[in-house]
Amino acid sequence: MNPLSAIRLPVSPDMLRGANGLTPDMAKLAIPQYELGKIASPTLQPSTAITPAGATFESTLGRLVSDVSAKQAAAGEAVAGLTTGAGVPLHQAVIAAEEASVSFQLMVEVRNKLLESYQELMRMQV
């Protein structure tokens, strides 16, 4: 359904003929049909081009989680390397830990958004 059909209605051919008590002058003041067409034409299509073939939403999410997990593991390794004297510099360990923390927060934000949209759907009146 075109969301702009309600706006288009007032400039139906009836109106241009002066029906509904409108004079032709008033009808001319309304937005012409072809101008509205320009606005309405680029409708959004569900995009299939962005995600590569075979990549579902689930697998994308799974990759995010495993990336975060890898970062946590790397941070753990760096801290272990630092404390056991394996030659990992202090700043590298701290940066790895910080990266793990930020990416974890990103994952939590994604989870919050997902849950929020699910609850929004559940609240919807049928």
């Binding site: 990336d67 975060v68 890898a70 970062k71 940066i95 910080e98 990266e99 930020v102 990416s103 990103l106």
Partner: peptide, 8 residues
């Protein structure tokens, strides 16, 4: 791999 802290 996601890159959260770019330029680091």
């Amino acid at each position: 791999m996601i890159n959260v802290l770019t330029g680091i």
